[in-house]
């Protein structure tokens, strides 16, 4: 699923877009969690094609993405990101989006469109 279609599906707002080509990027998997330890433990393969969905709007979510080679995060439940987090996102080359959807609804919408869970 293309990032631009994910954004449209979730009525998401672009907060940081680090490359011009980002909206055309294809994602195969999504993983949703507020627990960064779970993301670090579970996402083992194809992180480059995996979208991270989280309600945890802090620096550690960006660090986790950086460590895993994940480049795109969607923040759910209308969370606001501080200027510090936005700046760090730009410095780290991440794409950051925000949606008003709850995590459950965001996952449901993307799953219905065919975005898969990660391989275990």
């Amino acid at each position: 699923m293309k990032l631009k279609d994910i954004v449209s599906c979730l009525d998401a707002e672009a907060l940081v877009v680090s490359s011009d080509g980002a909206p055309e990027k294809e994602f195969r998997f999504a993983f949703a969690t507020d627990l960064m330890s779970d993301a670090l433990a579970m996402i083992q393969d194809s992180p480059e094609d995996t979208l991270l969905i989280s309600g945890l709007a802090n620096v550690q979510t960006l660090r986790t993405a950086e460590m895993l080679d994940i480049d795109t995060i969607v923040f759910v439940r209308g969370k606001k990101l501080s200027d510090e987090i936005l700046e760090m996102g730009r410095d780290s080359g991440l794409n950051l989006y925000a949606t008003k959807c709850t995590m459950y609804e965001a996952c449901g919408r993307l799953y219905a469109e065919g975005l898969s869970e990660i391989d275990e």
Binding site: D34, L35, M36, S37, D38, L40, A41, L56, N58, Q60, T61, T64
Partner: peptide, 16 residues
Amino acid sequence: RNMGFGAGMGLPNIKR
């Protein structure tokens, strides 16, 4: 826990 840690997965995951 507010930072997203404390799930009890740290050391097992490091070992893995």
